[in-house]
Design a protein around this nucleic acid. Structure first.
Length: 520
RNA sequence: GCUCCCGUAGUCUAGUCCGGUCAAGGAUUCGGGGCCUUCGACCCCGUAACGCGGGUUCGAAUCCCGCCGGGAGCACCA
């Protein structure tokens, strides 16, 4: 397969490095999900060939994850091959191919740990479809229709043939040659399949196989004017590329029928089809096209904006692809359309990162508190990096007498006694307090009593932090001294806030520390 | 409207092909309790489901019929 245009490995690695390097993500043992996936009909281990066909009009989002991971699952089960075939025929004015997405999608696959055995571009294959078209015509299976689009549509709905339908094979071949010979402009002629004009499914009546387009294709320009439609191109490529099983979303079931119809006509045996239903994450109310507009307009912070629910955005938030994979595979091959709360994904991720993620003190909306009669030996204190994992070590944090404490928590306890978590107890002055200037509290004791526990950060060496929220907004707070030593892309847990990940483009020492919020 | 698909607890899923071992299992959520100085983790306990109506059968989540509900497709997009 000379045209297998796999991206140079070094280039992929560079790109990955730009994303921050590969994640060591061990897949926990046990927990088999394979029972939920049926065997592929007639699958022979080592001989299975699968394919994924994204349309390059956006990055892969969590919904596309099903394509990625289900194919990967079966590829692993049968030690088969997985092809990535960009479905980049010309598209339309509303659905345009853009070059940047080829690389972005390749990067998404890499991020997901799904490495295709070969990469194809449909736009490179256009001339290969023409002989197949001729074969269909020669068998009387198609005709060149010159009806205007609206007329074609109306007649189809009514189940009425147009005058072109009665063409002889010879006439169709002539017309087809005229199409290829640039005798017609866009919209002036199409090659249509002859099915049954009374087919109960109106969508199936004499569908268009080829059309003429002058759109400037980002890869091949205007080299071709006669473009195949999806069903025809796949009817050919699933044969030519040796695909043994087609796994795709159920939005494409009608295309199965088209492909089978063409194969029957040509007398070839094509692969079986399997489908999965529509998967939606409740919180992710996104369409690919919407994200596209928001990114292009600058409203979104690039393709990894948390609002986009792209795979990149999940990675940015510290949600590992192993967790995403497990999450997606847990739905099996169900044809039902499902809507799942993101919490299920978070739970899956939490299982993987909780035990290895260090805890850090962070104070949102900080107020300054100064503690009178503060014990002189408590300028610093030592805390465990993880409450249940002594092997993660300890660190020394700066303590009083001056602290930052979350203002809303303080105000709730005005006039009362509270405990600064892990440290000591203080009595707060009665409110209300002025919004500027420190609040003066008084030391009352060290013993751990049942008092409201407040998060705190000693002012010495405290690190300003900016958190990117799920809604794309940024909020500021202040974190403990140890945060000065984090690395880009490190995952942390801010106690009582949640898991966050240091932004990939943050450089050590820069202020504020920028992190993306992951989940609780 | 037409075509196809799908209905198991709040949510997702196992079981349906080949009826009994399913008074329905798991995950997550929620509620209660325990524990660790996180609103997090862990442990224990609990709530909660076969869409409805007929039929076949000794026996139905599972087979048949009807209904209801939900979704997808119906482009010279992919």
């Amino acid at each position: 397969m000379a045209e297998a245009a796999g991206l140079p490995r070094s280039e992929l690695e560079d790109r990955l490095a730009a994303l921050g390097g590969p994640e060591p993500e061990p897949t926990p043992a046990g927990r088999s999900t394979t029972g939920e996936f049926p065997d592929l009909p007639g699958a022979v281990p080592g001989k299975v060939v699968l394919r994924m066909a994204p349309f390059p009009s956006g990055v892969l989002h969590i919904g596309n994850g099903r394509m990625l991971f289900v194919n990967q699952h079966y590829r692993e089960r049968y030690h088969g091959k997985l092809l990535l075939v960009f479905d980049d025929t010309v598209g339309s004015d509303v659905k345009r191919v853009e070059t940047e997405f080829f690389d972005l999608i390749l990067g998404d696959c890499e991020l997901a740990g799904v490495r295709p055995d070969a990469v194809y571009y449909k736009s490179d294959r256009i001339p290969r479809f023409y002989p197949w078209a001729r074969r269909v015509i020669e068998r009387g299976g198609a005709y060149v229709c010159r009806c205007p689009q609206e007329v074609l549509r109306e007649r189809r709905a009514e189940g009425v043939a147009c005058e072109h339908r009665s063409q002889s094979v010879g006439e169709t071949l002539d017309e087809w040659d005229r199409m290829l010979g640039n005798a017609y402009g866009p919209g002036e002629a199409v090659l249509r399949l002859r099915t049954d004009l009374h087919d109960p499914d109106p969508a199936f009546r004499d569908r268009v196989l080829f059309r003429i387009s002058d759109i400037d294709h980002p890869r091949v320009g205007r080299k071709w004017r006669v473009w195949p439609l999806l069903e025809f191109s796949w009817a050919v490529d699933d044969i030519e590329l040796g695909v043994t099983h087609v796994l795709r979303g159920k939005d494409l079931v009608m295309e199965d029928r088209m492909q089978r119809y063409l194969w029957d006509l040509l007398g070839v045996q094509g692969p079986p089809f399997l489908h999965w239903g529509i998967l939606r994450v409740r919180e992710a109310k996104v369409a690919k096209s919407k994200s596209y507009a928001e990114v292009k307009s600058g409203l979104y912070d690039g393709w990894a904006d948390p609002r986009s629910w792209s795979l990149r955005s999940l990675d940015r938030r510290g949600i590992g692809m192993a967790a995403v994979r497990e999450f997606i595979l847990s739905f099996g091959m169900s044809l039902a359309d499902i809507e799942v709360p993101a919490e299920t994904l978070y739970a899956e991720n939490r299982k993987r990162i909780d035990a290895t993620t260090v805890r850090r003190m962070y104070v949102p909306t900080p107020a300054r508190v100064i503690v009178d009669e503060y014990p002189s030996d408590l300028a610093t204190t030592e805390l465990a990096n993880h409450p249940d994992r002594p092997e993660l070590g300890r660190r020394t944090v700066a303590a009083g007498p001056a602290f930052f404490v979350p203002r809303p928590d303080l105000e709730r306890c005005a006039g009362g006694e509270v405990r600064l978590k892990d440290l000591l107890n203080v009595r707060l002055p009665p409110g209300p307090w002025p919004s500027d200037g420190p609040i003066r509290a008084t030391f009352t004791g060290r013993e751990n009593r049942k008092l409201p526990r407040l998060q705190w950060v000693g002012t010495e060496g405290a690190v300003p932090v900016e958190i990117l929220g799920l809604d794309g907004t940024r909020s500021s707070g202040i974190g403990e001294r140890a945060l000065a030593e984090v690395r880009a892309r490190e995952i942390l847990q801010f106690e009582r806030v949640g898991f966050v990940r240091v932004e990939a483009d943050w450089t050590p020492g820069a202020s504020p520390l920028r992190v993306a919020y992951g989940h609780a």
